[in-house]
Computed example of a mutant assay.
Amino acid sequence: MTRQGRWFHTPEQRPDADRQLFFFPHAGGSAAYYHRWAALLPGVEVRAVQLPGRQERRTEPPYRRTGPLVEALHEAIEAELDDRPYAFFGHSLGALLGYRLAVAIQEDGGSGPALLGVSGWAPERFRPVDALLPLPDGEFAAAVRRFGVLPAEAGTDPELLALVLPAVRADLALVADYRDDGGGVGCPVAAYGGRTDPTLEPGGLTEWARRTPAFLGVSEFPGGHFYLTEHALAVATDFSRHMQRVSQQGKLDTDRKAGR
């Protein structure tokens, strides 16, 4: 397996799919979180990003600074793109990474994603995590559970908690390292969130309207930070609808420019 190949999981190979969708995980999460989305998105090739420090990449040191990780993702994803349009979707830390990667591709003059889906995070309206990082493991686990960024299943299984906690700590260091520069993306953005998410200030997701020329609105669902676990089908259905519309509009624009 190549170095770049380790960054991506493809639950179902779909070379005939007309679009690719890259998923970015939440803090402490892995590519496996999105494997079931392949069944929810027919006609799309799902590519789930696997960050260092978890599952088969557990022996690799996790990133703790946002800039170097985005640079590594930028290098890795270039080998995965083909002529098909593609989109990004990220939850929590994944939304941060998808957003910054889209900005980096755009600044580098590349062909960015046709659509960006962001869930449970906004560039300026997320609550700071800096105070959590110096805590010893026991206090850290309790604090992140109260903060809402630890999946419920990890909190009840000591063995799973021991596996997840180092990645959660490293990923929250990434969030703490993030410095907003006000950058925008050139593609449409669709935002999703839980109505009682404690990690965001009220109305925080509406901030995305300032970061895109085409804001597709906010869809909120019952639940907290991990609302997405229960509402994956509804979010996938809505995001798929947006992808189809963006794809159709892109084809119309291409035909218009070609005089067809």
Rank of each mutant, 00 (worst) to 15 (best):
D82M: 07
P134R: 09
D157K: 09
L133K: 09
P188W: 08
A191T: 08
A131G: 10
A152D: 15
Q106F: 11
A162W: 08
L135H: 08
R100T: 04
D181Y: 04
S111G: 14
P123E: 13
Q106R: 14
L133M: 12
A102V: 09
G110Q: 07
A173C: 06
R145F: 06
E80D: 13
G112H: 02
G109W: 12
A167S: 14
V164T: 12
L135Y: 00
G120L: 03
V175Y: 07
T156M: 15
P158E: 13
R145N: 09
P113V: 06
G138S: 10
E139T: 03
F147C: 05
D181F: 11
D177C: 11
G186N: 12
I105P: 09
F126A: 06
S111H: 14
G110M: 12
R127Y: 05
G193I: 11
R146G: 13
V164N: 03
L150W: 00
P136T: 01
H91A: 04
R146T: 15
A167T: 13
D181I: 10
A87D: 06
P128H: 10
S111R: 14
A102P: 04
E139G: 07
L174A: 04
D180R: 10
L163A: 15
A102N: 01
R145T: 15
P85R: 07
A176C: 11
Y178W: 07
V149R: 00
F88V: 03
R84S: 08
L161H: 01
V189P: 08
V103G: 12
A87G: 09
R169Y: 04
E107W: 14
A104K: 15
F126H: 13
E159P: 02
F126S: 09
G109V: 13
V149L: 05
L161I: 12
L93M: 05
P134D: 10
A143Y: 00
A87S: 13
L133G: 09
G117D: 04
A141Y: 09
V149I: 14
G138H: 08
F140Q: 07
R125G: 10
V144C: 04
G117Q: 02
G94C: 06
E107T: 15
A102S: 10
V144W: 01
G90W: 07
L172Q: 02
R145S: 08
V185K: 05
E153A: 15
L161R: 08
D171T: 02
D180A: 12
G112L: 03
D181Q: 15
L165S: 03
G184Q: 12
L133Y: 02
R179F: 00
F88T: 07
V164K: 00
P134F: 08
L116I: 04
P158F: 12
V168W: 03
L116K: 03
D171M: 00
F89G: 02
V103I: 13
A131T: 14
V175S: 08
A131D: 13
A114Y: 02
A167W: 00
G98P: 04
G184K: 05
Y86D: 10
L161T: 02
A191W: 05
S111L: 14
L161Y: 03
A114F: 05
L132S: 06
P166T: 15
R145D: 12
F140E: 00
V175N: 00
P128Q: 11
H91M: 09
Y178C: 10
